[in-house]
């Protein structure tokens, strides 16, 4: 029975992916892409990976979808270039060959991951009991720090290459009551996700994405006016605080223990929760700014 469900889900994923890739209508394509994200998230729940499922639903499908919808209206549709049938056919053939090769490569070797015994052995020292959080914020915290740096650079880039602002007006009337429900809810859910991330699925990224969803509702409702230098400035400072605090924490740990990102004995949980709390706010602020475009500060 579950196998039938998995089969349907896998077929569904591929089906909506085809729609997302080949639909002529842009909004249909983006819509299909979002549906694909949610179906994939469902499949990852089935695969016992709820942390990534949450992230995919919130960020991969939700926020990316919102970004794509924003741009779908604004981007000029490029005139269709007359591509020769031969090149399309060649690309198709190569892709089929590539798919076969990839499938054979993945299934031909029985993977023996080196990590699970190591994670199991050291989870006790990591300060948290959710293994994914332990990997992200302790065992391989350097990856995560650099990932925050990616968000930082993207933010700088969007500030340097500003997009035109999101105009809240057309939806205003309808969105305000909606935002009244969504915003407090997003704060609650996000806090819950952050707190339970130590022991159960969740963590800074999922919490930040949910909070960003609430923030976007505020922006669309016109309640958060990023044109105002003060609100924009606070949001920007919050976004920058992520890399600043994480980097400072790395320096502090190096000074305290001699190991970069090696938390002092017995205090790992406090450090991790502290870093995650800052990251949640910073990620949320960064994502809102990435969606909203830059806050142009007028130099005096």
């Amino acid at each position: 029975m579950t196998q039938l469900f998995d089969a349907l889900l896998a077929v569904g994923i591929v089906g909506v992916a085809v729609a997302a890739l080949f639909a002529n209508d842009r909004f249909a394509a983006v819509g299909a892409f979002m549906v694909m994200g949610f179906l994939v998230a469902l499949s990852w729940v089935r695969l016992g990976a709820p942390d990534v499922a949450l992230a995919e639903a919130a960020i991969g499908a939700g926020l990316t979808g919102a970004l794509l919808l924003r741009s779908a209206r604004r981007l000029r549709v490029e005139p269709k270039m007359c591509q020769s049938r031969w090149s399309v056919a060649a690309s198709g053939l190569i892709s089929i060959g590539f798919a076969g090769l990839l499938y054979a490569a993945i299934t031909s070797v029985p993977t023996v991951p080196a990590y699970p015994p190591l994670v199991a052995e050291r989870l006790g020292e990591s300060g948290v009991s959710n293994p994914v959080t332990a990997v992200l914020l302790n065992f391989r915290a350097w990856d995560t720090l650099l990932e925050i740096a990616v968000l930082f650079v993207a933010l700088v880039l969007v500030i340097v290459v500003p997009v035109s602002r999101v105009r809240p007006a057309p939806l205003g009337e309808m969105v305000v009551p909606f935002a009244k429900v969504v915003v407090p809810l997003s704060v609650l859910i996000s806090g819950h996700l952050l707190w339970q991330g130590a022991d159960a699925p969740g963590g800074a990224f999922q919490a930040g994405a949910v909070l960003a969803g609430g923030g976007l509702a505020l922006v669309l409702a016109g309640a958060m006016r990023l044109k105002k230098p003060l609100q924009g400035g606070i949001l920007r400072a919050t976004a920058l605080s992520g890399l600043a605090v994480f980097g400072a924490a790395a320096v502090a740990t190096a000074a305290l223990t001699g190991h970069l990102l090696g938390y002092p004995d017995g205090q790992a949980k406090i450090w991790i929760l502290g870093i995650e709390a800052v990251l949640t706010l910073a990620i949320a602020a960064t994502l809102v700014l990435l969606f909203h475009g830059s806050v142009r500060r007028v130099p005096k």
């Binding site: 990534v52 992230a55 990932e147 990224f205």
Partner: peptide
């Protein structure tokens, strides 16, 4: 499912939304 690739995927998702935002702008 191994926890380490889960962390990789999570990192990848966040990286990708950042790059997508940059591309779109």
């Amino acid at each position: 499912t191994d926890a380490v690739p889960q962390a990789f995927v999570l990192t990848g998702i966040v990286v990708l939304v950042a790059v997508t935002a940059a591309l779109l702008s």
